[in-house]
Simulated scan of single mutants.
Amino acid sequence: MIVNLIATLVEEDLAEDNGALAPDDRLTCHVHGRWIYQCVSSPVHVNRVTRHRWCRGCDAELGVVIDELTGEVAMRCPRCGRGGSAATARLIAACRASIEARRAA
């Protein structure tokens, strides 16, 4: 499994550098060297400007819940219970895809 992670990290780094992969669509995290779902709860993955894991209305960081068994990923504002954005939706999709990629490894 670790070999597939490393290969995917390298492949995604190259694709991102060449403009063939958007950073939001990565299954791996180049900062943490992990599958994105394994580190998405880190403060590094919160961005107020792009609204990744951020509720603009409440000015709050979204909480993260990941169920590796079912593949469910949820990000919600601890204040209003919402906080969704297009950026967070893409991050959720990447997390779900990374869970599947790890399972396939």
Rank of each mutant, 00 (worst) to 15 (best):
N4H: 14
A89R: 15
Q38M: 08
T88P: 11
A15I: 01
L69Q: 09
R53N: 12
T8D: 03
T88N: 15
V31P: 00
M1S: 11
A20P: 00
A87Y: 02
R82W: 14
S42W: 12
L62I: 10
T50F: 13
D59V: 06
E72L: 11
I99M: 11
C55N: 11
S41T: 10
A97D: 13
A86D: 10
G19P: 00
D17G: 00
G63Q: 14
R51Q: 15
G83W: 11
T70A: 09
A94Y: 04
R26N: 01
V64K: 08
V73M: 05
A89D: 08
I2H: 07
V10Y: 06
E72C: 07
R53P: 02
D59W: 12
L5A: 04
P23I: 01
L69E: 13
R51S: 13
A94L: 04
L14P: 01
S42V: 07
G84N: 12
L9G: 01
S85Y: 14
A20H: 05
T8L: 05
H32W: 04
V49K: 15
G81F: 13
V10A: 13
T28Q: 04
D17F: 01
T50G: 02
A7Y: 00
A105T: 07
C55L: 12
L5P: 01
I92E: 12
S42N: 15
Y37M: 08
E16I: 00
N18K: 04
Y37G: 00
V3F: 09
E11T: 11
A7H: 04
C39P: 04
A87E: 12
I99R: 01
A60R: 15
R48T: 12
T28R: 05
V3N: 08
G81S: 08
M75C: 10
H45S: 09
E61P: 06
G71E: 08
N18M: 03
E100A: 12
D59A: 14
G83I: 05
A20L: 06
R53F: 12
L27C: 03
R102P: 02
G81W: 13
C39L: 02
C77K: 06
V64N: 03
S42K: 07
G81I: 01
G71L: 10
H45I: 05
T70F: 09
E61S: 14
E11F: 00
C77V: 06
R90V: 09
T88R: 08
A94K: 08
W54M: 09
T88L: 05
H52R: 11
G83L: 10
L69D: 12
C29W: 06
S85E: 14
H52F: 15
V10S: 01
G33W: 03
V64D: 06
C55E: 15
E11S: 13
E11N: 07
